[in-house]
Simulated scan of single mutants.
Amino acid sequence: MATPGDSRRLFKLVQEGRLRALQEELQAAGVCQELAGDTLLHCAARHGHRDILAYLVESWGMDIEAGNRDYKRPLHEAASMGHRDCVCYLLDRGASVDCLKKADWTPLMMACTRKNLEVIQDLVEHGANPLLKNKDGWNSFHIASREGDPLILQYLLTVCPDAWKTESKIRRTPLHTAAMHGCLEAVKVLLTRCQYEPDCKDNCGITPFMDAVQCGHIDIAKLLLKTHKACFSAEDSLGAQALHRAAITGQDEAIRFLVSDLGINVDVRAATTHLTALHYAAKEGHTSTIQTLLSLGADINAKDERNRSALHLAYAGQHLACAEFLLQSGLKDSEDVTGTLAQQLTKKADVLQGFNLT
């Protein structure tokens, strides 16, 4: 039987919300212990047990500003899990509203990872600053854009109109993030209430339209084209366009949209490498995407600036199924500028055997 005050048992009682049993244990032990850096307050806040939270603070004088190994305080825990009653209790007891955990996350940032408007409102009304940024350069509005709740975004813009004027350390905006994660309603709010440049680029040259396309969110891509006048032929830092990025991620429906609906040349080349979408799909081993591109009229014999065909990239990536499909579709092996055949790029015996059998 566990001795009174055993830390694992105490934490289990808190987790299960068993206040009376906890009271008896603590009275017998006469001391509160930590477990792996957490205090019982962290556990109570994390699991939403306000009664236990109040008991530990008021009867045992536990410190509401105690930090665990990640520098999380009980307010971080309550906010991140959306436990409004615990959040309000801690705030009313004077908890620091903008305290920082590891990576410089505030309780408001943690709350914005949950779609709980009331908790966010409570924190803001107690002075939380929506403009603070974490170590990656994300403020609370940016984090909320990833989750995509339009009501939360509307609220943050109302209490802090400049919250949208933010970029991460790699220059990604909330519009990039919402587009990437498929948050259509959030994108609508951002386009209505914010003033992002149509083709704002991050450090890699990616635009919100590219993000939407490469993640398969065609509805958002259409909205960005119609409402935001995005450019579908914009290039990233390597000269690749949205079509190329869709080929990299294997987004076949997005490719059909770009080629069939928008009229993009299926064989358009990346500016710096002269790679086509077919090359990119082969490099990643996306056989179905290669099928899609060929059905849309892609040139199977297209070569890049080093005279490599899609077969070279398929074999270099050790993608046997992809290489076999290209060969069966009529692509012949040929030398690149160094005189290297595609089959010479394979490192796996079974891949080479597959080539010989084909």
Rank of each mutant, 00 (worst) to 15 (best):
L156P: 01
L191K: 03
P174S: 06
M180V: 00
I152Q: 08
G137K: 05
T158Y: 12
A178P: 07
C194V: 09
K135F: 11
C160F: 03
S168P: 01
P130S: 13
L190S: 02
D149P: 09
Q195H: 14
H181M: 09
I170Y: 05
L151N: 14
S168A: 04
K188M: 14
I152H: 07
D162I: 14
S140P: 14
I143Q: 01
C160Q: 10
C160H: 00
Q195K: 15
E167R: 13
R172Y: 08
E185W: 09
M180A: 14
Q154W: 05
L131A: 10
I152G: 03
I143N: 03
Q195W: 06
L184G: 04
N134C: 13
T158H: 15
R171S: 08
L191R: 01
M180K: 12
R146Y: 12
P130H: 11
Y155H: 05
L175H: 01
R172E: 14
L190F: 08
R171V: 06
S140L: 10
I152R: 01
L132H: 03
E185Y: 03
C194A: 12
W164H: 13
G137Y: 09
A179L: 04
K169L: 13
T177G: 01
L190Y: 08
L190T: 10
T173A: 06
V159Y: 06
S168L: 07
W138Y: 15
L190E: 00
G148P: 06
A178I: 12
E185F: 10
V187R: 02
K135G: 07
T177M: 14
P150L: 08
P150R: 11
L157R: 09
A144T: 06
